[in-house]
Design a protein around this nucleic acid. Structure first.
Length: 231
DNA sequence: GCCAACGTTGGC
DNA sequence: GCCAACGTTGGC
């Protein structure tokens, strides 16, 4: 299997379905402290993860997924995986393993074949959106959770009841120009007081989430930046 | 290397 | 079920 995607995840995540549910309520509690910004996100999350109530919440269909393009060693293993690494693989396809955060996992479980995701470079000299990939296989069991040698091994997850999922992604293209975090942030800050398109972008309102949804408007706006001068 | 933000753990 | 302590994320 593929290089370790380092979805920067908390290794020590919790145990059973019960915890899983609690983690959702934790999210809701966090909502209160974080103000209104997360409402849309959490309603969709709880409505669409397949474990909870039916709801008319809109389905997200665009995504942003973070990975680290520069070498970093975790337990002696290099977790580097940038967009160039994806591009270099057979079929330019890989499984997005190693996600160990319930919210991120739940978003992956919502992903449908054919949807597009930005490949975001994190924890590096030049963080930002590097390119676009396509979801080519919907959520299935992340085998690395059972692999003691794997950086993201989770001793608390049992094969009879796997905790973590992954999707397969395929490289589509590089951005016409790299879209740096700093530029996205400028738009976010500009939009926030004016109700602009990036005002609630998860990258800024949910900073540590390694797999996050984008609205169609956010996705299209970011794409439009490719043809603009850097801010 | 620092450290703010925030999710998770575990005592109570 | 609360919440303080702890650990991680990830930009700077």
């Amino acid at each position: 299997m593929p290089p370790k995607k380092k979805a920067r995840v908390t290794k020590r995540t919790a145990k059973s379905d019960k915890d899983e549910r609690e983690s959702v309520s934790t999210v809701k509690a966090a909502d209160k402290t974080a103000g209104h910004k997360r409402k849309a996100v959490s309603s969709v999350e709880t409505g669409n993860n397949g474990t909870s109530e039916s709801s008319g919440a809109p389905q997200y269909c665009h995504w942003l997924m973070k990975s680290e393009p520069e070498s970093r060693f975790e337990n002696g293993i290099d977790v580097k995986f940038g967009i160039e690494d994806l591009k270099a693989l057979p079929d330019q396809t890989d499984c997005w393993d190693g996600v160990r955060n319930y919210q991120a996992r739940n978003f992956m479980r919502q992903m449908k074949e054919g949807q597009l995701a930005f490949f975001y470079h994190s924890n590096c000299k030049d963080p930002g959106i590097a390119g676009i990939m396509k979801i080519v296989k919907e959520a299935y069991v992340d085998h690395t959770q059972f692999d003691k040698k794997d950086v993201h091994y989770d001793a608390s997850s049992k094969p009879e009841n796997p905790k973590w999922s992954m999707v397969d992604v395929q490289y589509q293209r590089m951005m016409k120009r790299f879209l740096p975090l700093s530029e996205l942030k400028k738009y976010h800050l500009e939009h926030r007081p004016k109700g602009g398109i990036l005002k609630d972008m998860a990258l800024f309102t949910r900073a540590r989430l390694s797999v996050q949804p984008l609205t169609a408007e956010e996705f299209d706006f970011i794409l439009s930046l490719e043809d603009k001068e850097p801010l």
